[in-house]
Amino acid sequence: MSVVAHLPRRALTLAEEESASPPAMELTGRRKIADGDRALAATIFDEFHADPRYREFVLGCLNCGECTTGCPAARFYDFSPREMLQIAANGDATTLWDALQEKIWACCQCYTCNMRCRFGNDIAGIISVMRELSVIHGLESTRRTLAPFGRSLTLLMTVGTQVSSDMIQPDFFRDWGPFATGSDKVWQVSPEVMRKAIPVDVLQTTRSAWEVSVQTSLELFRIYEETGVLDMLRGLDPDLTEMLVDIVEERREEFAEARERFAADLAGQRGTVATFTG
């Protein structure tokens, strides 16, 4: 009998799930969930299905496995986009909860599955929806997974770039070899001089991918405040978030001071530069 036959036609309630006897063959295996997590799992399950993108991204599934055949993550992890789509389409609160703990983070977001799926499912997209929920609810497993991203999140939130040349520290990126960083050992100059040797002024910095003007970075922070991204981050890492707010406050003061300093030059300006105050 096909595995599809074992999948419930609709999501089981938690009570039904408890009392159901295990089917002869389960697509996703028997999952465990701690008692303390059940309410949260149910909330996430409801929010997942209520997300407007759900109806747009999950269109049906033949279980053909075309998506998994081309999936890079499936080659190296216990992960498959077919399973993710099946969990999205037919899973219950427990299977979704289980996927959020680890599996969703295996995906490379390459969109190969989307391109191959005859149903036109947006599998990469529905995995992103799952990830967003795990961030919004600050799952412990998500905090652990994202712990190494403090520096890139700081750059992202304060200047809107994600990598800088001073992040590529030889100690941390030893596997990239001795030439990966325009290394001072090879060229006998400091990283700052190495950046000065790039013939583009805005790239001559080690602290960001490129120099971003204060106005631009403050506009970006306004976007994060207005779209709930800052709150998302607060749920995940409150200390980092407070530090970011402090950095941005300082930049706002710096911006106000610059407006006084450059008052004469700004007098004839129109558009955003004339109106944006931080």
């Binding site: 992103s128 991203f149 992202l156 990598v163 971003v212 970006l220 709930g228």
Partner: peptide, 24 residues
């Protein structure tokens, strides 16, 4: 023009950590 008045698209972060959303 190659300006400092540009942010990245921030999608690396979104596809990596999901600490954003489509409206942002």
């Amino acid at each position: 023009l190659n300006e400092p008045h540009q942010t990245s698209c921030t999608a690396w972060n979104y596809h990596g950590t999901a600490t954003s959303n489509p409206v942002a």
